[in-house]
Design a protein around this nucleic acid. Structure first.
Lengths: 112, 112
DNA sequence: CTCATTGTTCGATTGTTGTGAAATCTTATG
DNA sequence: CATAAGATTTCACAACAATCGAACAATGAG
């Protein structure tokens, strides 16, 4: 992967609001038991489920727990997608969203 | 560590030129044998040494291999320092610079 | 002391980003 | 179909970031 790809990924995570969005998705899709960092990102919602590791109704849920306009949130989602960090698909009214673990792993590799 | 600290770290790495500076320091201080990613950041200089894991004359060396003005490079160094990613000290004419491994580790921890 | 080398600071310029409002598109439902 | 709810696009604008040149401060060499 090119250096510019990495800087793009870091840029996507460089805004605090966007990082929070990412963490919410991350912690609700990929978190394993015993995670310490990021427990505060857990969505307090019985229905939060991870069908095949993806978060259902991601857009709506994140709108509900963040104090930003929908357009701004839409924009942030697009940045995260464009950096390759998340993968989203809309299926009817369900906006399903998951982490692109390959990209997350490549960041870890990068810092080796 | 606060979320805002993480976003600050990512911001420091979000600019391609600054990321390159970081990688040059990183690969010349911390790289282990067999590193694949980042081999291109190796400074081609016999005198490149890692006294106690730090890069000597970092500023000058980086000026030499990047196409940016000194003032811009100075600015980028300060951003990296301010995010906590590197630690620099000037001793006479030697600008000695090393990676703050604790911070690098906390990024890895963050993505767990 | 004088000069060259290193690095910092300041001011200006140009480009980028974060944000909300409003209009629009999409999908589900009465 | 009409309406509501969900998500996107477009526009505008303030705030911020990247860059350079010039002036400046600190250090070492002659």
């Amino acid at each position: 992967m090119e250096l510019s790809n990495y800087s793009k990924i870091f840029k996507a995570l460089s805004n605090e609001q966007r990082l929070k969005i990412f963490m919410i998705i991350y912690k609700n899709c990929c978190a394993t038991e015993g995670t310490v960092i990021g427990a505060e990102f857990k969505i307090d919602d019985e229905s939060t489920c991870c069908v095949k590791g993806s978060l259902e109704k991601a857009f709506t849920k994140i709108c509900d727990c963040m104090n930003l306009s929908r357009s701004t949130i839409s924009h942030h989602f697009k940045e995260l997608q464009s950096a390759g960090l998340i993968i989203c698909e809309r299926e009817g009214q369900t906006y399903r969203c998951k982490i692109n673990e390959e990209v997350v792993n490549s960041i870890k590799e990068f810092l080796k």
